[in-house]
């Protein structure tokens, strides 16, 4: 069983912060497809999960993710190398999500149970993975969920997350820690 688990769960080593080469942006601006594909490969998952944590809808999150990468292509020539490319990308994602959120405010809200299904977790084949992500979105407060998504998927430091979310660092650390504890409790209680 242990060996099986080791084979199945052979994942790449613990992912540290996503290391993005800032030279990708001017290359994308000049029409380098390979650079764009490399950027998408590294950042699509964190962008999608972050959008999902804001919009709470798989369809909207996919749209937001696509819009993010289209905006990256259109504004790549404006990127200024400040050493924080992820922050630049996630800020674009946040702005797009907020725009969509405001536009959606006038539409009817789905019932609670439909909203959970709307997240599309059923597409995740691994049960533990699915359960963990599902719990993060259903049990945790939205801020905690968002912080955990950013840290877990992109490896962003808590200070950078605090800047992105415009929160004090201590608040971010506190919400992250409480969120992880709650997730642990919830997951350990499950069969």
């Amino acid at each position: 069983m242990l060996i099986f688990e080791a084979v199945v769960y052979e994942t790449p080593p613990q992912q540290a912060e996503i290391l993005l080469d800032e030279s990708l942006f001017p290359r994308i601006a000049s029409g380098d497809k390979a650079a764009f594909l490399a950027l998408y490969e590294k950042c699509s998952s964190p962008v999608f999960a972050y959008a999902l944590s804001i919009l709470r809808s798989r369809g909207d999150s996919e749209d937001a993710m696509q819009d993010t990468f289209l905006k990256i292509r259109s504004a790549a020539h404006l990127y200024q190398p400040l050493g924080k490319p992820l922050a630049w990308i996630f800020t674009i994602t946040r702005n797009i999500c907020l725009m969509m959120y405001r536009q959606r405010a006038h539409t009817a809200q789905l019932p609670e149970e439909d909203r959970v299904q709307d997240l599309g977790f059923d597409r995740i084949q691994n049960a533990e993975d699915r359960m963990t992500l599902e719990k993060a979105f259903t049990v945790l407060p939205e801020d905690s969920c968002r912080i955990i998504m950013l840290h877990a998927l992109s490896g962003m430091k808590h200070r950078e997350i605090a800047e992105l979310m415009n929160m004090p660092l201590s608040t971010v650390l506190s919400k992250y820690k409480r969120g992880i504890e709650k997730l642990r409790t919830e997951l350990e209680g499950m069969p």
């Binding site: 699509s44 696509q66 597409r123 995740i124 993975d129 359960m131 998504m149 998927l153």
Partner: peptide
């Protein structure tokens, strides 16, 4: 926990590159 979340999100993300 973070590993589970990462794998789950990766599985959910569409490939539209």
């Amino acid at each position: 926990i973070n590993d589970h979340i990462r794998r789950a999100a990766s599985a959910m993300t569409p490939k539209y590159a």
